[in-house]
């Protein structure tokens, strides 16, 4: 029980770190990778809260398909964010 609580606190802290990195990074490809990592950690958090259906959906949609769509969109535009 206490180990599960510690694991949840660590996961939520890492989710916040990934979200802040996705907003603040100047390189947009790194930002997309940070968003994918945050999404994968959200999937782990869903699994810890005993919702494996939502965890599979989040890992498939959020971590894989959204990243692929962002990378395809980045090929059409610039990689660096303008000041």
């Amino acid at each position: 029980m206490i180990a599960e609580t510690i694991l949840q606190i660590v996961t939520l802290t890492l989710i916040i770190c990934g979200a802040v990195l996705a907003v603040t990074l100047r390189d947009l490809l790194s930002s997309v990778i940070a968003l994918a990592a945050a999404s994968l950690l959200v999937s782990l958090e869903f699994y810890l809260l005993q919702a494996p259906d939502v965890a599979i959906a989040e890992a498939g949609i959020g971590a894989a398909l959204t990243t692929a769509i962002y990378i395809i969109a980045l090929r059409r535009t610039r990689r660096k964010e303008q000041q």
Partner: peptide, 16 residues
Amino acid sequence: PGGGFQGGAVVASAFA
């Protein structure tokens, strides 16, 4: 755990 939507998303991620 899983279902049509989740499995379809996993296969589509392989295509992606």
